[in-house]
Computed example of a mutant assay.
Amino acid sequence: MPRTVALIRGVGGPTAMKMAALREVLASAGLGEVETLQVAGNVVLDAADRSPDDIAATMRDAIRGGFGFDLPVLVRSHAELVDAVARNPFADAAEGRWVQTVFLDAPPAEPTLTLPDGIPEEAVLDGREVFVRYPEGIGGSKLQAGWFEKRLGVIGTARNANTIAKLLALSA
């Protein structure tokens, strides 16, 4: 049975967590068998009969109680991740680490996205995802997840195509 993927926004630096401790805290919160990928807030778990909102709230409470951090959590089913990859117009780009999907907690009230003039990046807003291609690399770009959050008025967290492929394999 496919599993559920939870993406924690803002893991790292002052909000860094040991992944073994995170797995333990989440399992203790009743989230079943929990796996993590990388040290960036990527969690795969069994949803059981829980709704995405319930999973997100349970995780957020557990992280706040276990680590003292109040970090947003966005949840997607395996099928939703498969669908996002299928809709990504940049999925065939040669450099997967320079293609990101910004997962949003809700569709923006205004479903249009206007990028600044003169930038090399391309971005497409589609429902609860923004697909972004960074032809010159991500590091120096102004179009980070926070830029999209501010313009769209929603919470978002970005993952590159390579990480999404690994999450798909773990959640299958």
Rank of each mutant, 00 (worst) to 15 (best):
D49K: 13
R60G: 02
L22V: 04
D53L: 06
S77Q: 01
D92R: 15
P89A: 05
S28I: 14
D117R: 14
L113A: 03
G65F: 04
D61T: 15
L168P: 05
V154L: 00
G139V: 13
L22E: 03
G140R: 14
T4E: 10
T112Q: 08
N162K: 12
V11I: 11
D61R: 14
E136K: 12
M1V: 15
A145M: 12
V11N: 08
G30W: 04
V39N: 15
A16M: 09
V5L: 05
D54C: 10
A145P: 15
G68A: 04
A145R: 12
R97G: 10
G41V: 04
S51N: 02
P108A: 01
V39C: 15
D92Y: 15
F67N: 00
G137H: 06
V11M: 07
P52V: 02
E80W: 03
E121H: 07
S141C: 02
E24P: 07
A47I: 09
V5P: 02
L22A: 05
G153M: 00
L26Y: 06
D61E: 13
V73E: 01
P116G: 06
I164C: 12
V132P: 04
F90A: 06
P116W: 05
P14G: 14
P108Y: 00
T114W: 07
D49V: 14
R159S: 04
S141P: 05
L113K: 04
V154M: 00
G153I: 02
D105A: 00
